[in-house]
Simulated assay, not measured.
Amino acid sequence: VSAHSDRFQYLQALVTEFQDTDSAEAKEQVLANLANFSYDPRNLSELRRLQVADLFLDMLTEDNETLVEFGMGGLCNLCLDKVSKSHILASGALNLVINCLSSHREETVLSAVTALMYLSCAASHADITSAPVVECMVRFSLSNNRRLRNLATIFLEDYCSEQQVREAQDLHTALGIPLPHSTHT
């Protein structure tokens, strides 16, 4: 028995457990494990066969914030793989990922911003840099949270035109949204 088939059976058991359990805690634990496995390229073919990307996508609309966080984290990990990226884009997931930008959980938001960068391509670029997303990134770039501020700044510099950023900044100022007070610079 190869390590390859052992890995498949183990991942299949995780997916089955996730689908069969009614315990929220067990679901969270299994999803966290699947998200971790999605970080390792050696697991990609098994995860594809088990349609784990779709499982992660399904989590993005859950009421349970922990399931959303792990689903977004797993999806973010899978976005680096070209085949998974194509599947995620083809499944119309961009809006689900964009919706995660408004999560109250830092890890969910960080994963969503990162996933949008990974999912950017000629076909998705206009959606990923739509005005609401750019405005959101401008807001994040002013955050007291250093990780979020840095990630949003990279997004604005690497994925948006100067004009898009300027328009978002002008709108931000026009709306009179007070900037968060920085406790340290």
Rank of each mutant, 00 (worst) to 15 (best):
E46A: 09
V30M: 06
F56N: 05
R48S: 05
G73L: 00
P180R: 10
S91V: 09
L101K: 02
I128K: 01
L110E: 05
A35L: 08
A174G: 06
K82N: 13
E62H: 03
V165Q: 08
S84E: 14
H4W: 13
E135K: 11
L175C: 03
P41R: 14
R147K: 14
D54C: 08
L34E: 05
N36M: 05
Q163P: 00
R139T: 14
A122L: 15
D170F: 01
S182T: 09
T16N: 08
L60Q: 11
L110Y: 03
E157T: 03
A3R: 09
L96M: 12
L175P: 00
R105M: 06
L34F: 04
S120Y: 09
L57T: 05
L119P: 06
D170I: 08
N33M: 14
A35C: 02
S23Y: 07
L78P: 08
A3W: 04
I177Y: 01
S91C: 06
T61D: 10
V133N: 04
L31N: 09
D58T: 09
Q169G: 01
A53H: 05
R7D: 12
H104C: 04
P180E: 14
L80Y: 03
S111P: 01
L80P: 00
T21R: 08
L78W: 00
R48L: 09
S102E: 15
F18G: 02
E25W: 04
L31K: 01
T185W: 14
S120H: 13
L44R: 08
V133Y: 06
L110G: 00
A32D: 12
A131E: 15
K27G: 03
L75D: 05
N43K: 04
T183V: 13
S182V: 12
A126P: 02
F56W: 04
S161I: 02
Q169L: 04
V113L: 11
S130F: 11
S182Q: 14
S2T: 13
D20N: 11
F37C: 04
S38Y: 02
A168Y: 06
R139D: 15
H4V: 13
A123P: 00
H87A: 11
L57W: 01
A26V: 11
L57P: 00
L110I: 08
S130Q: 14
C121V: 13
S120G: 07
H184K: 15
D6F: 13
C121P: 07
A123T: 11
R48H: 15
K82E: 14
N144L: 02
S141C: 03
F155P: 02
V68N: 12
G92R: 04
E106S: 13
A90T: 04
T183S: 11
A174N: 12
A123E: 15
G74F: 06
L57Q: 06
E135D: 10
T114A: 08
A13W: 13
L156R: 00
A32P: 00
T66M: 07
G92E: 14
A131F: 15
